[in-house]
């Protein structure tokens, strides 16, 4: 069986719809991983031990095990305790939590790198501990963390392919659907790869612009 790419355009719409879902899941999981990452970082650095310990344990478990395994745990685990989430939501939660742990590590390092004088200055001016963190330390830390976190977002985009395994209709599963009708895996997986490559290039360009803007605003 040779190659025949003429069937690919027939499924252009299916692939584009998959692409839209891939982008949606990347944005959703990206935002979730950003905010939970900040929360985890603050807890890991400043939390009472009764919350710090569980967060540490969670981070340790999630950094030491494969994402695919975590997706199975979240998808089937939630069903077991009676929460039957749509695959898309489970995928966003799984990817979001996975990358939140990695983002948290980056944010912790950059919070510690913020000059101690900033903290002391803010406290001297009468800001409370919480205000100092929220208004002074974290904004500076987040700025420093944009470039490495951008790399995490690029990894997230590519890892979003894994949620096809729990049945989210993104690019990979869209390609699989086309393959199940046409029996042309090479052509459609290559088309899917091209879709990812294009989205990846766009994301990289966007991140580079964001980095320049942040560098300029300093």
């Amino acid at each position: 069986m040779g190659l025949d790419f003429t069937v690919v355009p027939d499924y252009f719409g299916v692939l584009m719809l998959g692409g839209a879902w891939t982008i949606a899941i990347t944005i959703g999981a990206g935002l979730l991983s950003f905010f939970i990452g900040i929360l985890f970082a603050v807890i890991a650095l400043y939390g009472h031990w009764s919350v710090r310990l569980p967060v540490r344990l969670f981070a340790w478990l999630f950094m030491g095990t494969p994402l695919l395994l975590q997706l199975f745990l979240i998808y089937f685990g939630l069903i077991q305790i009676g929460i039957d989430l749509p695959a898309f939501v489970a995928g966003v939660i799984g990817l979001g939590l996975h990358f939140a742990v990695y983002n948290s590590e980056l944010i912790q390092a950059s919070i510690l790198a913020v000059d101690k004088g900033q903290y002391e200055g803010a406290r001297t001016l009468g800001l409370s501990r919480g205000q100092t963190l929220r208004r002074v330390v974290i904004p500076q830390a987040v700025r420093a963390v944009v470039p490495p976190m951008g790399n995490n977002m690029i990894a997230l985009l590519k890892d979003s392919a894994l949620v096809s395994v729990i049945g989210v209709m993104e690019i990979t599963l869209a390609a699989q659907q086309a393959i199940s009708r046409t029996y042309r895996p090479f052509e459609f997986y290559l088309a899917a790869a091209a879709c990812y490559y294009v989205v990846n290039l766009a994301l990289e360009a966007g991140l580079r612009r964001l980095e320049r803007r942040i560098a300029a605003s300093r």
Partner: peptide, 22 residues
């Protein structure tokens, strides 16, 4: 650029499922 720009899962699928075609 190509191998870092696309998901490893897709690369694996191209090789395993698409390989026989070539």
């Amino acid at each position: 650029s190509l191998f870092r720009g696309t998901p490893a899962l897709i690369q694996l699928f191209i090789l395993y499922f698409g390989g026989p075609q070539i």
